[in-house]
Design a protein around this nucleic acid. Structure first.
Lengths: 141, 141
DNA sequence: TCATAGTTTAGAATTATTCTAAATTGAGTT
DNA sequence: AACTCAATTTAGAATAATTCTAAACTATGA
């Protein structure tokens, strides 16, 4: 029996999970496989659940939520807040910003080096800057 | 009977509502009075409902939601998206950005002239920029 | 005063998310 | 391979913010 491409994705995922102190369960390996096989993905819990279910894998929605949060804690994902009603997770954890097509719920990365935010005043006393998020809201047409 | 300060706030609110094609109902006048009496306020539906209720005025939460959206449509308010679970409304509709203290749900305005965002790439084909939002996430300490 | 379209409201419905407690499982022992 | 046990998964209930619905109310112009 030869190793399939799928096995290699799973192996990569398993390794990555172990490196981040996460036990590589079947569910986490499947989700990590989907999330990190390709680059720069933006998912919601629902969209990821649909995707993994569509691939014939049985993972509960609760586990998708748990896993997204654990991956975020572990630094494998980053949360993106652009919509009051949905929470997005981004596989790109580096310095970058986003275009957001509200109507379609579509996020597009903007390289961090491209954008520069100048003139941010010092925050009021007792506060320190955590990070600066830029959302470029765009629409068709 | 002399005119009270409260009446004058109500008169201003009434005028403003008429100017924007909104019928000045008791509820809308009360809410507009609270929102626009002072400058630069940031509210959620819940916080505004608490505030108006606390002032002894009876307005349903549904009406607060309706009113916030109508005011936004009319250009009297602007929505601010900084939190995945709550929706904020800002009485400052001009060009400006925000500090956000996540733990406290606190928004602080940054004048639009202060901040400059440079290097935003052209959006992908078929998309045009609606606006650019900057959120400076800050924390105590 | 009347008519009526616009508005308000209580409560039900919806949506995204989190919680709970019981069942299952991964991984290190024996 | 069987055993143990803490970590994980899960179905379904619970929560929270928001929206919807349909009936009651009200501002306004005739």
């Amino acid at each position: 029996m030869v190793k399939s491409a799928r096995d290699s994705v799973a192996d990569q995922a398993t390794l990555r999970l172990r490196q981040h102190g996460l036990r590589p369960t079947r569910q986490r390996v499947e989700l990590a496989g989907i999330l990190f096989r390709d680059c720069d993905r933006h998912v919601t819990a629902e969209s990821l659940h649909d995707e993994v279910s569509g691939a014939g894998v049985k993972v509960s929605l609760a586990t998708v939520y748990n896993t997204l949060h654990q991956f975020t804690e572990a630094g494998l994902l980053r949360q993106v807040i652009v919509d009051a009603s949905r929470c997005y997770f981004d596989t790109n954890t580096g310095n970058h910003q986003h275009f957001f097509v509200e109507k379609e719920g579509l996020l597009i990365d903007i390289p961090g080096e491209a954008i520069e935010v100048a003139g941010v005043p010092a925050p009021p006393d007792g506060l320190s800057v955590d990070r600066v998020d830029v959302v470029v809201r765009v629409r068709r047409g």
